[in-house]
Design a protein around this nucleic acid. Structure first.
Lengths: 147, 147
DNA sequence: CAGGATCCTATTCGATACTG
DNA sequence: CAGTATCGAATAGGATCCTG
């Protein structure tokens, strides 16, 4: 998920793309935003990502200094993630990507206007109301069977 | 390479990530920049991408309105690519990603200072001097054999 | 020259089960 | 709760050959 060839480049731009150039990391960074978020929260906000991939991406983001992980020695365990200074500095870039898309997208879907914070927005986007992810469909099927 | 689930989201940010959220497209857009570039040029500027993947990415970028493809009816054929207005509007975002990385990267490699244009810079980054890509190594081997 | 088609391999990803 | 381990399926990607 991190392209080591890109990261080994002597070009800072290429290295940056090697680090954050995939589809999950911008989404994760955007979802965390300025908040402090627990692992399970992220998993339910972004239901289409599997817990395995989520854990992998979070680990890489931590290694690359984009976020800070705080594990509390409790039972049941509690782990909180928040963006580092580097990660926070990336948020304006994500905002500009959204603005860019809104301005130039050929066939934009209808979008409810109003005051959407970064987080509620991100939550709206990739969730069960927007498109039915596989694992949610699976859960629904199970529920029907149980009934 | 385009995540259709992301593109079907009702969130413009998620759709944007579904469109350009991979490692190749930012590189390609950056390499083209404000120039008009031929297919073969791109293939030699970015030697680590295979021609197949390059063609696929270019087609998607064209479909998404980021670049314009001009095919001249000549023999041998000549095809030129240049960024559309939408694609050009994405360049400042790529610049800000580079600046962000330069400012916050934990262990940046040494970088030669000086006046580097977008293009020569991109060419430096992913090429045979930076790290030896497989197909260049192959070509070199062939050359040795020929000699 | 600029690709398309084909075949094959490597990598990613998801589902499931398990643990401290 | 917050992961990790394992396995199998899906996908990305490379090599090669072919064509207008």
């Amino acid at each position: 998920m991190r392209d080591e060839r890109f990261c080994a480049s002597n070009c800072p731009f290429t290295r940056a793309i090697g680090t954050i150039g995939n589809k999950w990391k911008p989404i994760i960074i955007n979802v965390i935003g300025t908040r402090t978020v627990r692992f399970g929260q992220m998993d339910s906000i972004i239901p289409i990502i599997s817990r395995k991939v989520l854990a992998e991406q979070l680990k890489e983001l931590e290694e690359d200094g984009l976020l800070e992980r705080m594990a509390y020695k409790e039972l049941p365990p509690r782990v909180e993630y928040k963006l580092s200074e580097k990660g926070l500095a990336f948020l304006p870039i994500l905002d500009s990507i959204k603005e860019w898309n809104c301005k130039y997208e050929v066939t934009p879907l209808t979008e409810a206007p109003g005051q959407k914070s970064r987080i509620t927005y991100a939550a709206d986007l990739i969730d069960r109301k927007t498109f039915v992810p596989k694992k949610i469909a699976k859960v629904a099927t199970d529920a029907v069977i149980k009934d």
